[in-house]
Amino acid sequence: MQYRLDINGAIREVDAPPEMPLLWVLRGELGLLGTKYGCGVGLCGACTVHVDGAAQRSCQLPVGRVGHAKIHTIEHIGATAAGERLQQAWLKIDVMQCGYCQAGQIMSACALLGRTAQPSEAEINAAMAGNLCRCGCYNRIRSAIRIAAGLEEEGGHVA
């Protein structure tokens, strides 16, 4: 099947079976490699993208159901104000260890700040609970979101 997808502000044409998850269209057909495979069943959040501004697991979204939705991926997120603040905050306190899950973390965090500009700790925990980090960077993920939201000057968890 031929699809015209609105990805990162551009129309991209792909030929794929309708059941192919968006994740594998991004990675395998369009060369957008920032979005990661981690579990394939929506349990880890490494494949998180924005679908019309909401965080979704791209491994659970068949390309045949994307339609005219606007898709944004980690490659584009720095072009948004919240995304850029998050990237800067992530770097300020160097959140990551291996870094593999971080694209998904930032996408979930960005969707959170899109609906809640100044999230509480409970709201951060709830919004980020679907994103696994095997390295255990969670203290700094919390901190970086607070920095990006203007709730924290310096990371509380940096030496």
Binding site: L33, I74, I77, L86, M96, Q102
Partner: peptide
């Protein structure tokens, strides 16, 4: 980290 700036951009 030396790769961190690349990681946050995917």
């Amino acid at each position: 980290g030396i790769d961190s700036a690349r990681i946050v951009k995917g």
